[in-house]
Design a protein around this nucleic acid. Structure first.
Length: 435
RNA sequence: GGCCCUAUCGUCUAACGGUUAGGACGGAGCCUUCUCAAGGCUUAAAUCCGGGUUCGAUUCCCGGUAGGGUCACCA
């Protein structure tokens, strides 16, 4: 493959705020497309607005991308390219394509003079990879402002120059940029740059179908990280928002890691309509990825939420916790609701909840006879099973479980017994018998 | 309001003129060695409306309607 045909995409966020999941989906699609095509994926921090750009926002973008595993081949900051922008600006002015324009100052901070692009006022048509042919009449745009001064280029100019200078071949961005495209095409022609291939992604929508934003509580991606969502789950979820692996011959699978996504991704399989961010599906995805973790990873995960609990016990109950939780909040709730307490301390079962303590003596006897070395879930179960079946499982198992947990809902009695140990099990059984 | 984009179950989506309109999340029900969770099975649930084109439209065209985006000296 020759160098000129190499595909280069870019993610060009501005560090003027915390980016949400919709923004990172754009990054993901740029990444996937570049990798799929054997090309490069660039990160360009669009910090032309010196007033609003903040280092902490930039850092958050870097952190988020790193966490998601979206590695870029190159990073640049738009502010470092101002020389280039002004070079082109000079040329545009010299050739009469742009001009100094006297302005009426309406608001504080406005300049009395800015630089406007001389709009050729014509129709512009481009092919959007997702939408097909799109046409605009640029007359509606007027002579738009491209710089505050000869040393202060603005967004439209900066974008076009930077994309040209870094040989961007494909611009994949949100649909909210679709109306900027004719301006950019006009500018490209004016500076003698080729028009890259455009693909405008449908927007990620808030539940009320409007553009996702802070106003709807759209969280920065790092908040999902801090809430216990796994990057794999977020990646998978974002990919499914607007793109479908089920196209063509299709597949009903939808669990894909980054590598698999690169393999399968296809811009032509990206839909055209906006997609509402469905948190429930994210939770489900997170749970499935949580289940894939190794035991050590699970323990690390759970420990983040329950740092003060006894590690030995926590290790044993981690699988149980993750069977019932899909994020940190779920685990916190389990803890607060007392659903975990019985693993750490003896419960005080409610007599009514116990229902029937008649068979507990026999259960104690059976379990007491078990050799310490044989104290496993399997053996515990086997030792009481026949008896339970004989007199009625619910008659035996329910009281046994409540005696051990004190809860109406809990893990099964065999698992609890195995975790708390023989001595403690017998003690709890005895306590319940005497209620 | 001008311009632009979009329109299949509640949600994410598949079906690129012919299907009993498929899958997933969520819901409901059942099963799964007592409860909960997980798992399995079953089930309810959709082509925005009106015209065309066609032997035949979810699919193509036109018009409505609805929703969204955008109209900065932000990006």
């Amino acid at each position: 493959m020759s160098n000129t045909s190499k595909i280069i995409t870019r993610f060009a966020p501005s560090p003027t705020g915390l980016l949400h999941l919709g923004n990172y989906r754009t990054a993901l699609f740029n990444y996937l497309y570049a990798k799929k095509m054997g090309g490069q994926f660039l990160l360009r921090v669009e910090d032309t607005d010196r007033e609003r750009s903040k280092p902490e926002f930039e850092q958050n973008i870097l952190d988020s991308l790193a966490w998601l595993g979206l590695e870029y081949d190159r990073i640049s900051k738009q502010s470092e390219n101002v020389d280039k922008h002004t070079d082109y600006l000079q040329k545009l002015i010299a050739s009469g394509r742009a001009y100094h324009s006297k302005e009426e100052v309406k608001e504080a901070g406005q300049r009395a003079e800015v630089i406007r692009f001389k709009n050729p006022n014509r129709a512009v048509t481009f092919i959007d990879l997702i939408r097909g042919e799109v046409s605009f009449d640029t007359t509606d745009l007027g002579d738009f402002v491209i710089a505050k001064s000869e040393t202060e280029p603005l967004f439209h100019l900066a974008v076009v120059v930077d994309d040209f200078e870094s040989s961007i071949t494909h611009i994949i961005r949100g649909e909210d940029h679709i109306s900027n495209t004719p301006r950019h095409i006009l500018l490209q022609e004016a500076i003698g740059a080729p028009t890259p291939i455009y693909a405008h992604l449908p927007l990620v929508l808030a539940p009320d179908r409007s553009k996702l934003s802070k106003r709807h509580g759209a969280l920065p991606i790092t908040d999902y990280r801090d809430a216990g969502f796994l990057p794999e789950a977020i990646i998978n979820f974002m990919a499914l928002l607007g793109w479908s692996p089920q196209h063509g011959e299709g597949t009903n699978e939808e669990i894909f890691n980054l590598t698999e996504l690169i393999e399968r991704f296809d811009l032509s399989a990206v839909g055209k309509s906006g997609a509402i961010f469905n948190i429930e599906k994210l939770a489900w995805l997170n749970k499935t990825y949580l289940a894939k973790l190794t035991l050590e990873e699970k323990l690390t995960y759970v420990t983040k939420v329950l740092p003060s609990l006894d590690q030995t016990v926590l290790t044993k109950i981690t699988p149980l916790i993750l069977d019932r939780a899909s994020n940190f909040e779920d685990i916190k709730k389990m803890k607060e609701a007392g659903e975990l307490a019985y693993f750490f301390e003896s419960p005080k079962p409610n007599k009514d909840l116990l229902k029937n303590t008649a068979h507990l003596v026999k259960v104690s006897e059976l379990l007491g006879a078990l050799p310490q070395a044989d104290w496993t879930i399997e053996s515990i179960k086997n030792s009481v099973w026949d008896f339970a079946t004989e007199v009625g499982r619910a008659e035996v198992l329910w009281p046994m479980r409540v005696a051990l947990s004190g809860q109406a809902k809990s893990a099964d009695p065999f698992t609890i017994a195995a975790i708390i140990g023989q001595e403690e099990t017998l003690a709890r059984l005895t306590y319940a018998q005497n209620l």
